[in-house]
Amino acid sequence: MDLDDALAGVVAQSGDRLLRVAYQLTHDRVAAQDLVQEALLRVYRSMIRCGVAPQDSYAYLRRAVLNEYLRTVRLRSSAEVVTDRMPERPVAGSPEDQIADRAQLWAALGALSARQRAVLVLRYYEDLPDHQIAALLGCREASVRSLASRGLAVMRQLAVPASIGEEDRS
């Protein structure tokens, strides 16, 4: 199998998953597609130069997507428009309220810093342990815990859902 086939295989096998991770990071369909496309091109060029495909293609590409996301956000952070005004909080109880809760959480995720969001996506969406997240982000495990803790704290401030327990309100 040559490199093109290998890359095409990765896209066919893992493209959807990569795009979902990218969407979790960006909350934007076009940006997610750009992110994965850019990461694929970078990996493709690297593979061409090295002449070999990485053993764990998905993990390799996920790392490339993550790096590209953090790089892009760092370069273009000013383009982000963040609001600290959240929708009115619903009253707990009804299914409609629960949907509203989730919408608030999703919106609050979008207000986090890039690294905080990356940590939460890797931890709660990709189910990665903190030591792997630390390796991906190039930081210490304690930093991952700190980023997660700060991210969750911000989310609690911005979007405490009505159906979430008191321990998350304090």
Partner: peptide, 17 residues
């Protein structure tokens, strides 16, 4: 994790990519 997963269907598809 559930909130994140509930938005999976909004992500673009590999065919689009």
């Amino acid at each position: 994790g559930q909130v994140m997963a509930s938005h999976d269907q909004e992500a673009p598809a590999a065919a689009d990519l």
